[in-house]
């Protein structure tokens, strides 16, 4: 009886513990700062447009598609970043010693809100911790944007 009880408790405890373990793991996922609406909508745009090349983890693909993690292109000047989305990107870029060469098509057909959301999402995901991008900022860059 006693052994049976101890056995049962042991099983329950280990279940409880693995559950707790899973919970802890869950909690270590990147905490989303800023507007959660922008994050949710930004993720939607990312999944529709960006994921094909930059991949689900934002890591890109070696030699071809640059990563969006921990690079000045993403974390630095917002105007430059917004312009990349509007105009595309057709230069070789070297990040952490790796060269990336695929062209990025322009995405000027996206609405200001969508660009703000997706850039906010990218700047706050994959371990990135940069400030949000606002619709006003996108609007301003788009107004001043000269493609050629």
């Amino acid at each position: 009886m006693k052994i049976k009880l101890i056995g049962t408790v042991l099983v329950i405890c280990s279940l409880f513990f693995s559950y707790g373990y899973a919970q802890v793991k869950h909690a270590t996922k990147p905490v989303h700062h800023g507007s959660s609406v922008a994050m949710v909508n930004g993720k939607k745009v990312y999944t529709q447009i960006c994921i094909a090349c930059h991949m689900a983890d934002g890591g890109g693909m070696s030699n071809m598609n640059p990563p969006l993690i921990n690079t000045s292109y993403v974390l630095g000047d917002k105007t430059t970043l917004i312009k990349i989305v509007l105009n595309g990107f057709k230069e070789d870029v070297e990040i952490n010693g790796q060269k990336y060469s695929n062209n990025m098509t322009p995405h000027s057909d996206l609405k200001d809100q969508q660009i703000a959301d997706v850039l906010t999402f990218v700047r706050k995901s994959f371990g990135n911790k940069a400030s949000a991008v606002s619709v006003a900022e996108v609007k301003k860059v788009r107004a001043a944007n000269v493609t050629k």
Binding site: I6, V9, L10, V11, C13, S14, F16, F17, S18, Y21
Partner: peptide, 18 residues
């Protein structure tokens, strides 16, 4: 006794699990 043993079992559970 059970309350005392709970964390002990939990640790054992974790070790076995891992």
């Amino acid at each position: 006794l059970l309350i005392f043993l709970l964390p002990v079992f939990a640790v054992i559970g974790l070790i076995v699990f891992n």
